[in-house]
Amino acid sequence: MGVRALWRSVREPRTLKSIYGAIYSVVLLGGIGTLLSPPQSIAGELGPVLTVIWSVAFIMGATGGMLSVMPGWWWAERLSIYFIWTGFGIYLFVVINLHFTANGSRITQIATIVIAVALFLIRRVQIHGYSFEPRR
């Protein structure tokens, strides 16, 4: 199967699904990077067990999202989004805590996390209501 045939096999909106596929890929890389080399300011606050849970939430969510976005398995993509939200929730909690207890401002990190969560909220709203993408 050629690249064009593969591209045509993806139901519309192809571009949007491709963008979300790329976003899930970035989250996967972030989760793997966090697992292999966690940021010390965050890992120190979380401890080793919660640091692993944090990174595994990203890895599981991103993997599920990558596998479910193209075929339109919305039930699986929603579950994946919940895993990703869990990872971001843990991260946000620690960053907010560090903002008030450590030196320096963490406002940029907080804003970035909130934007990332909102991106997945938009996707969650888009796929609400069905287990699978309705066929047209």
Rank of each mutant, 00 (worst) to 15 (best):
L6M: 13
L36M: 06
S55F: 04
V69C: 01
I115S: 06
H99K: 10
Q109D: 14
R124A: 15
G47N: 10
N103I: 15
W73E: 08
G30D: 02
I127N: 00
A102P: 06
V26K: 06
L79D: 10
I59D: 03
A102L: 10
L16S: 08
G61S: 05
W74I: 06
F93N: 09
V125D: 03
G64M: 15
W73Q: 11
R123V: 05
R135P: 10
R8T: 05
F83A: 09
L28G: 06
F88P: 10
S68I: 10
E45F: 09
S37I: 01
T34V: 00
T108Q: 11
S80F: 01
V95P: 03
E77M: 08
L29Y: 15
E12Q: 09
I115R: 11
M60P: 03
I127H: 09
T101F: 01
V56C: 04
N97Y: 14
Q109E: 15
E133N: 02
I127E: 01
I122C: 11
L67N: 08
G64W: 14
R123S: 04
S41C: 13
A5Y: 07
R14H: 11
A62E: 07
L79S: 15
A116Y: 12
T15S: 08
G47I: 06
G104I: 12
T51D: 00
A76Y: 03
F132Q: 05
W85Y: 02
S68F: 00
A43M: 04
A22P: 12
Y91G: 12
G89I: 02
T101R: 06
L98C: 07
G21T: 10
L121N: 15
G129I: 08
W74V: 08
V27I: 14
R135D: 11
M1E: 11
V117Q: 14
I53H: 05
M70R: 06
F132H: 10
I90Q: 12
R136W: 11
G47A: 04
G104Q: 07
Y24E: 13
Y82F: 14
P38K: 05
G65M: 06
V52D: 03
R8S: 10
G65W: 05
R4C: 13
R4H: 13
S80T: 03
F132C: 08
V27A: 07
T15M: 13
R106K: 12
A116E: 07
V27H: 00
V49R: 10
G47M: 08
I115A: 14
F120W: 08
T15C: 06
A62V: 05
H128R: 14
V26S: 07
Y82E: 14
G64D: 10
R11E: 09
R136E: 15
T112P: 04
G89N: 04
G33R: 04
L92C: 06
R123E: 02
Q40P: 11
G104R: 13
V10Y: 00
I59F: 04
R106W: 14
V3H: 09
G30R: 01
I19P: 03
S18K: 03
M70C: 05
W74C: 02
S55D: 04
V27D: 01
I19D: 02
T34R: 12
A111G: 14
